[in-house]
Computed example of a mutant assay.
Amino acid sequence: MAAFNLTPSDPSTFILMGIPGLEAAHLWISIPFCMFFFIGLLGNFMVLFVVGKEQTLHKPMYLLLCMLALTDIGMSTSVMPKALCIFWFNWKGITVDGCFTQMFFLHAVSVMKSAILVTMAFDRYVAIYNPLRYTTILTNARIAKLGLVGLTRAVLFILPLPLLLSRQPFCANRIIPHTYCEHIAVAKISCGDITVNRMYGLVMAFVVIGLDLMLIALSYGLVIRAVLRISSKKAHQKALNTCTAHICVILTTYASYLFSNLTHRFGQGIASNLHIILANLYFLIPPMLNPIIYGIKTKKLRDKVGKYIYRM
């Protein structure tokens, strides 16, 4: 009940407003949000369960799918529980430390997911360009090491965001017009100079995401070149089919991420409530769609999931 007694000037808390202007519709908005959230959790936990149980799936490609599922679970759970508390119970208060912790995790998991997508693109390149050496180049141990590198990179790049903000003064207005503690949304309510925060956030986004997109584009450029060297049309189709799921995941992930990130900085013409809804969908739609996409396009995974569903 303490959340109802918070004031905008309480020095120990911030207040998350949810979706300003649509407070009366919070309950209705929560219905699709909640549905997407639980479908995403169910699908990603199913992927983790099936791959963990099936020895035949203990291979690099499926290990990467498990990493992707973990980041999708981390993304949605870092945002949605608090958002649903705002929608259902009007619990808008969040401690300053809790806000910075949420900020760190949601941004770190996003950067980690980007690293996994790069590794998956490299996996497809090796599988098509040099299939005979695939099992020796990409072992489970090597994939685990690449995952650890991605995690280390995410922590090192994102840790300065809450650290820089923790040094900023926050005056009377401690109201964040959002459902979660997005970096720029929090920085904007500071009464200090946030130029460094803005520049670091922007540079980090473009360096990390820009570099990752370049590596993915390079991998697929080499994949296309390798495919064009194959004379059989059937082999063309088979090779490209192995990449379809990953390309769909890339499009859903990066399109929503870039839209959310750039509109926070440059989208003054976009209605704030529309932007906040779309920003939340970034944490809901890709985690919900990814296990469905891979379930449809990956026959081995689809068959194993079907086996466990029929047993229920």
Rank of each mutant, 00 (worst) to 15 (best):
A187C: 04
T242K: 01
S12R: 09
L215N: 14
L106H: 14
Y200G: 05
L57A: 01
M199I: 14
L117T: 03
L159K: 10
R198G: 14
G21Q: 02
S231A: 12
S110C: 15
V186Q: 00
G21L: 03
P11V: 08
R133P: 00
V155A: 09
S114D: 03
R167Q: 15
P162E: 07
F104S: 07
T101P: 01
F283I: 07
K82A: 04
L63P: 02
I175P: 03
C34P: 03
D10Y: 13
K234P: 00
C85T: 12
V155E: 01
T136R: 10
Q237Y: 05
L301V: 01
G74E: 00
Y257D: 08
M312S: 15
A271M: 05
D303S: 11
A144F: 14
H58S: 02
P287H: 03
N290F: 10
A217V: 09
S76K: 02
A239V: 00
A255K: 04
Y220A: 10
L202S: 12
L64P: 07
R198Y: 10
F89D: 12
V208C: 02
A115G: 15
N261M: 15
I296Y: 08
A279L: 01
L164H: 05
E23F: 01
I276T: 10
L65E: 07
M103W: 04
C171W: 06
V196Y: 08
I209S: 08
M214Q: 11
C191T: 09
L289A: 11
L258D: 05
S256L: 13
G150I: 09
E54A: 04
P20V: 06
V227H: 02
P162Q: 11
C85S: 12
D303I: 02
E23I: 03
D97M: 10
A271K: 11
N173T: 13
I116T: 07
G269W: 10
G210V: 05
Y125E: 03
A69C: 09
G43F: 05
V223K: 06
M214H: 14
K145M: 06
G192V: 01
G192K: 02
K113Y: 00
W91I: 13
I277Q: 00
F49C: 12
M35N: 02
T101M: 11
W91C: 09
Y125M: 14
A121M: 13
L57F: 00
G40V: 04
S219R: 12
T244K: 15
K307Q: 14
